[in-house]
């Protein structure tokens, strides 16, 4: 019996958006091949809502790999668990979310399970001749690439925000898979996690991102960005120059060398749109550019553009959204 396995990553005790996206893609791929979906959960214990959430998003079976030593996350231990499962059950297709931890796990599994790896695909793999092809973003958002392999097993990692999570409810059967990490897989020792003190969504997962650049003239002016972000429930970001001169923290820098994002809506305020910045944000589904320079290169990739002074436009936009939300909140 064969199946498509998906690593249902647990983050802070929960199944977050990257996992729901991966489950959704797995369900679609499995339906195209007539295979069941096995959701694989690795950790110390199973989140209490596992049966419900994984079933809602299309899992036919929930395979739990539980061991006290699997918390906190260590990439080699998780990769070893997945590799053993793949080999013992002769699994041929594996989906992994392209989260930070997914990126740390997938290449190890590719070697240990002797698999081919497509990384950061943005759509369901399609049959092509003897093998599969899939589409991914290449050249830092400046192009797409169709990759192909006839090698099995095949592991794919799914880029964040590439597909919309969709429910496909069923009741998964449960199975546990016995595994204990060996000492050599636990050489790397996590000491502690330092979260950036924020109640906002992480940048990489945010559906809406409000971003500011040098056009804002100084860090004291970020209030208008924060207020717009707040009314939108958005994450805030900034351009590289702004982070480099210390107006904003480095963890907000999006672009070629910063964080790469692809939200549903990216609002760029006072950012000219240098090619390095676009490389980090151009896969956003919708881009609204606010800039007083009508010649700013950012307008070339914009869906919506407001040519005007940010200090005038942004508060009016914030107010208009607040008003709209108040009128439509019931």
């Amino acid at each position: 019996m064969s199946a498509i396995a998906v690593w249902a990553e647990v983050s802070e005790g929960r199944y977050k958006k990257p996992t729901l996206e991966a489950l959704t893609l797995t369900r679609q791929w499995a339906d195209s091949l007539g295979l069941p979906v096995w959701a694989v959960v690795i950790g110390k214990e199973l989140p209490t809502d596992s049966q419900q959430v994984l079933g809602d998003y299309g899992a036919d079976r929930l395979i739990s790999i539980l061991d006290p030593q699997l918390e906190p996350f260590v990439n080699s231990a998780y990769a070893r668990a997945l590799s053993e499962l793949i080999q013992q059950k002769a699994i041929r297709y594996i989906v992994i979310p392209q989260s930070y931890n997914g990126r740390a796990v997938a290449p190890l599994v590719a070697i240990w399970a002797d698999a081919a790896l497509f990384s950061g695909i943005i759509g369901v793999p399609e049959k092509e001749g003897e093998g599969f092809k899939a589409r991914r973003i290449a050249y830092s958002n400046k192009g797409f690439e169709w990759v192909y392999t006839a090698h099995l097993p095949l592991i794919v990692t799914l880029k964040a925000n590439a597909i919309v999570p969709a429910k496909n409810s069923r009741t998964p059967e449960q199975e546990s898979f016995s595994f204990s990490p060996k000492a050599e897989d636990l050489r790397l020792k996590p000491i502690r996690v330092e979260k950036i003190a924020t109640d906002k969504v992480p940048l990489t997962e945010a559906e809406i991102v409000v971003s500011g650049g040098r056009g804002l003239k100084g860090p004291e002016n970020w209030k208008i960005i924060e207020e717009l972000a707040q009314v939108l429930g958005a994450a805030t970001a900034c351009s590289k120059p702004v982070a480099d001169i210390g107006w904003r923290p480095h963890h907000e820098h999006v672009g070629q060398t910063g964080i790469q994002i692809s939200p549903n809506l990216y609002v760029a305020i006072g950012i000219s749109g240098a090619i390095q910045h676009l490389a980090g944000v151009a896969s956003s589904k919708n881009i609204l550019v606010i800039n007083n320079d009508a010649e700013a290169p950012f307008f070339k990739v914009a869906d919506y553009g407001i040519i005007g002074d940010a200090f005038e436009v942004v508060p009016r936009l914030t107010e208009a959204i607040r008003k709209y939300k108040a009128q439509h909140s019931h």
């Binding site: 092509e128 797409f144 690439e145 090698h151 151009a282 869906d303």
Partner: peptide
């Protein structure tokens, strides 16, 4: 193990609204 079938440029973006 993996080969590129082809590359595609990003779809041309029309003028913004």
């Amino acid at each position: 193990r993996v080969r590129t079938l082809k590359h595609e440029p990003p779809p041309p973006k029309g003028a913004f609204k």
